[in-house]
Computed example of a mutant assay.
Amino acid sequence: MEELRKKLEEDMADVNWNDIKPHAQRDAVIVVNETLNLLDVGVAIAQDDKKAVEHWITEQLISKPSNQQLSDWNIDQTQLFKTLIVQPFVLVQSV
């Protein structure tokens, strides 16, 4: 698990909405609440930790972007996000 965590941590990046937009168009973006550690969520998804992921979904701590969020991000395309790719998803968190 430590090796996975290290690899995912190396893959984390800050990117703007324009770079994320194509992934949103293929419905692959997952918004991670700021109260969660993006790396922890990525590790849980990569390891198929259903219990943790279902808990976060139930608590609305991770979700697909809402239409309002997509609209806001399309208006301000310079907004930065902390991102982590966990195939086939792109996890995003506001910076």
Rank of each mutant, 00 (worst) to 15 (best):
A28H: 05
E3T: 14
S94Y: 09
A13V: 12
A28K: 06
L4D: 07
M12K: 10
L84H: 00
D76V: 11
V53L: 08
E59R: 07
D49Y: 00
L39F: 00
E34T: 13
D72S: 11
F89K: 01
L70F: 07
L38S: 03
M12E: 05
T35Y: 04
Q93W: 08
P65C: 12
I57G: 03
L70P: 00
V53M: 09
E59Q: 09
K21F: 08
Q69P: 02
M1K: 13
S66A: 07
M1C: 05
V95S: 12
I62P: 01
N18L: 15
D14G: 08
E34G: 12
P22G: 02
K82M: 12
T58A: 15
K6W: 06
A28L: 09
D14Y: 14
P65R: 10
P22I: 05
V95F: 08
N18W: 11
L61A: 05
D19I: 04
E59V: 02
H55S: 12
K82F: 08
D11E: 15
Q77D: 11
N18K: 14
I62N: 01
I75W: 11
Q93R: 11
D11R: 15
D11W: 09
D27E: 15
L84E: 03
T83A: 03
K7M: 13
V92Y: 01
E10S: 14
K21D: 06
L39M: 07
V95T: 13
A52E: 12
E34L: 07
E2I: 12
F89T: 01
V53G: 05
K51C: 02
E2N: 13
M1N: 13
L91R: 04
V43A: 00
K64I: 10
E10H: 10
R5S: 05
R5V: 03
A46V: 05
S66H: 05
I45W: 04
W17Q: 07
T83E: 07
W17Y: 15
I20P: 03
E59N: 06
D40W: 04
V43N: 04
E34H: 05
R5G: 01
K21I: 04
S66R: 02
K50R: 10
N33W: 02
W73T: 06
V31L: 11
D14K: 13
S63T: 09
Q87P: 09
A52T: 05
K82T: 13
E59K: 14
E3G: 06
Q79H: 07
D49C: 03
Q77F: 03
R26D: 12
L91P: 03
Q47T: 14
S71M: 15
A24Q: 10
Q47K: 14
W17P: 04
K21M: 07
E9T: 00
T58S: 15
P22D: 06
Q25I: 09
V95R: 15
L84C: 01
K64Y: 14
I20R: 03
A28C: 11
K6T: 12
Q69K: 07
K21E: 15
L38E: 02
S63M: 12
G42T: 09
V41A: 09
V95D: 12
D76I: 11
N16V: 10
A46Q: 07
D11L: 14
L36N: 03
F81H: 00
V32M: 06
N18E: 15
V53D: 00
